[in-house]
Nucleic acid binder design. Sequence first.
DNA 1: GACATAGTAGACCTAACGAGTCTATATTTA
DNA 2: TAAATATAGACTCGTTAGGTCTACTATGTC
Lengths: 150, 150
Amino acid sequence: MNVGRRVDYAVRALSYLAGQPDGTIVSRSDIEKNQDVPSFYLSKIMKDLVAGGLVESHIGSKGGFTLAKKATSITIKDIYETVERPLVLMECLEQGASYCSFCTVCKQKSIWEEAQSVLANFLAGVTIADIADRQGMKGRMLKTPMQRVG
Amino acid sequence: MNVGRRVDYAVRALSYLAGQPDGTIVSRSDIEKNQDVPSFYLSKIMKDLVAGGLVESHIGSKGGFTLAKKATSITIKDIYETVERPLVLMECLEQGASYCSFCTVCKQKSIWEEAQSVLANFLAGVTIADIADRQGMKGRMLKTPMQRVG
DNA sequence: GACATAGTAGACCTAACGAGTCTATATTTA
DNA sequence: TAAATATAGACTCGTTAGGTCTACTATGTC
């Protein structure tokens, strides 16, 4: 039960984008360097974020990525589900009886269901803007002054 | 970010024990049969539960397991941490700078810290007794009438 | 139009982990 | 003594996370 690097890197990338002057196109390698993400690794993650409608890509020379929405409307839950999978705490909540034959009479199930809601609600209440606001990472500290998007 | 079978099986085992008449010793294979847990698999899980002080073991013929505490004082969080690992949502919360060099200035971190608290608090508020009360699983429905421990 | 510079798509690798199975040993009851 | 039980640990197998790389396509610029 922990959040993997894909989500971590996706949050870094998105909050980095959010911290750029409006409309700035940022390349994958730029993000990787500034946010300490392994080379090339972001290519798969950004693909998912594009497919999920969270960022827009710009192919070709001088290409790169920009946010596809306001930073205030991209939640951590969105990001998690876009780059990983639906937020599900216990497999039975997704698979039902094919996970466990006692599913219909199981009391444990509702506990996990509630726990999942509690967590999902929290993560749906936090946006990239909240993170970018107090970003503080390397790039932000050394380079351009803070300038918000949205 | 999901809860694995170890925790699922541990909760089944413990709530099964909680549903027995007070002081009843139940063998591993008995639990496995009644709670649909793969043969032998519980041997490792019960070992952890014994080591964690949640159950007591009785070696030898007619041996088996009993709860070591009242069902009302065994929480889901206890179980999770006993059979799996400390409840940590993001590795950086445990490993700090050895996970990520930006740790000291990272805003993302506090988000996961909060999310973790929210989840942990919820799981610490649910006990085995809550589950056993409305157990409903196979064994309970077919066999002895409900009788609570603690 | 040519070329450099991007993203796109996907193959590929490796180590670790989850889940499950089994066995030899120590311990206890009958 | 014999049967039944937990204990400890080895073992397998498939999947996944994390990471790396390359061929291809699209686009801006000279």
